[in-house]
Design a protein around this nucleic acid. Structure first.
Length: 435
DNA sequence: TCTGGGGTCCTAGGACCC
DNA sequence: TCTGGGGTCCTAGGACCC
């Protein structure tokens, strides 16, 4: 355990407020002030809500069909998720953060950690306020900033920025340690970073219900019940840093592309086509990260919500003869695995392809007796180049042509890709002035 | 009718070795 | 026949995150 208490350590976490909804609002001014929700893939669950939608009692993660009546009654605007748009906003914001702070960890699509150690305590809040308004002005996205001596306390501060002073948008525990205890006392366990549903229930059963009670629990007991992961959280609540800022992201260990289908798929050819396209996409991701994979895993699952239908889920792995990022090899191996695990007569609702045992392409050791396919790398580079220039759909594989679209996901309310596709670019119309 | 996708880390247990 | 300690590697499952 490398816990460390250093004087004056200041970690900020910058989190976009209701990020997906905020992105939708940037180009659709009519959405301001209205209840808005964004859905997961397949238009399944609510994954982002505006403040107005939250006030209507629409919970995070709820399936759309359960709140359909409320949506209709209150005129809630419902959007399919548009990851091309959100990803682009995310990159722009990350760019601004990297200009502003020396060490930045882009933690997720809507949140980053900044190391602000060294900024005079008296200036922290104003500095964060400036940053927040700069992001708002240049991207249109509102952000909230929490500051603390550890990542866990910064996250807790962020929660308070949201709850207590969303207008100011900054809550600082690093230069105001006296605020920590009251904040911990008023934070339920579920609001602590690192405490999920299971642990919340377990701890609640033992009489621990607030972040303060968790902070003051005994080390030995926490270690026994929650392992080192739980102990780290507790130490961080005490101001001892266990999680550093990782400004150089570690290379991925797995790459996954999976989908729940728009409807259940019983037909072998369709499932084959779906898995082939997932494998090709996973290999694309691999190449864009400059990695190769040693093995591929395929999984399939029937609809777990339809208890009356025959259920089957399975997964299996196939190893490549030599690490590769060639889409054709990934597809070949994946459909082979699929053929071995698929059961006739089962209606599958979900499938996915994982690439495992990743390593950097340049570190790859050539196999002594491999019949090296020297065209593979060149072909893949050419494919990637053409797609970058002419769009992802400009070039496909043979199996794409036979593709039956039956498994495609539902996206009935997709907004345009305003910032990443030329023909979706918003137009500004200038009218001559009348006077 | 309608229920997401993509990751990480840790732990326990078994196989195997010396 | 009975029997110790310590190590590694692998896998499955469980917890968490957004």
């Amino acid at each position: 355990m490398s816990a460390e208490k250093r004087p004056g350590r200041a970690i900020a976490v910058v989190e976009c407020n209701d990020f997906f909804v905020s992105c939708e609002r940037v180009f659709r001014r009519g959405l301001a002030g209205r209840p808005v929700v964004v859905l997961s893939n397949n238009d399944g669950c609510v994954v982002s809500r505006s403040a107005e939608a939250k006030r209507l009692g629409i919970r995070m993660g709820v399936p759309l069909f359960e709140v359909r009546e409320r949506v209709r009654r209150h005129g809630v605007v419902v959007c399919s998720s548009n990851y091309a748009l959100y990803g682009d906003f995310s990159q722009r914001i990350a760019g601004l953060l990297c200009e502003a702070a020396p060490a930045v960890e882009v933690y997720s699509i809507d949140e980053s950690f900044l190391d602000l150690t060294g900024l005079p305590a008296g200036e922290l809040e104003a500095w964060c306020g400036d940053l927040s308004s700069r992001i708002r002005r240049w991207t249109g996205i509102p952000v909230l900033v929490g500051v603390g001596p550890t990542k866990t306390l910064a996250k807790l501060a962020n929660r308070w920025a949201k709850k207590s002073s969303p207008a100011a948008g900054v809550f600082d525990l690093a230069s105001h340690p006296d605020r920590t205890e009251p904040a911990l006392r008023r934070t339920p366990l579920g609001g602590v970073w690192g405490i999920g549903h299971r642990w919340e229930r377990m701890l609640g059963g033992c009489g621990i219900r607030t972040a303060l009670e968790l902070r003051d629990a005994s080390d030995g007991w926490i270690r026994k019940r929650m392992g080192v992961t739980g102990l780290r959280t507790v130490l961080e609540l005490r101001g001892l840093a266990c999680h550093e800022i990782e400004s150089q992201p570690a290379p991925r260990q797995t790459v996954c592309h999976s989908r729940t289908f728009g409807r259940a798929v019983r037909d072998g050819r369709q499932l084959h086509a779906a898995v082939a396209s997932f494998a090709a996409r996973a290999a694309d991701k691999l190449r864009s990260a400059g990695q190769v994979a040693g093995a591929v895993q395929v999984f399939v699952a029937s609809d777990r919500f339809r208890k009356e239908a025959p259920q089957h889920s399975a997964a299996a792995v196939s190893r490549f003869r030599e690490p590769t990022s060639d889409s054709r090899e990934a597809v070949r191996a994946a459909v082979g695995v699929l053929a071995a695990i698929r059961r006739e007569g089962i209606a599958y609702r979900q499938a996915g392809v994982l690439l495992l045992e990743l390593s950097a392409e340049r570190e790859r050791a050539p196999e002594l007796f491999a019949a090296a396919d020297s065209t593979s790398g060149a072909l893949m580079r050419a494919v990637d180049r053409i797609r970058r220039r002419f769009g992802r759909d400009s070039l496909g594989w043979g199996f794409d042509r036979e593709r039956d679209e039956g498994w495609r996901m539902r996206q009935e309310r997709l907004s345009p890709r305003y910032t990443t596709r030329w023909r979706d670019l918003p137009a500004a119309v200038l009218r001559p002035s009348r006077n």
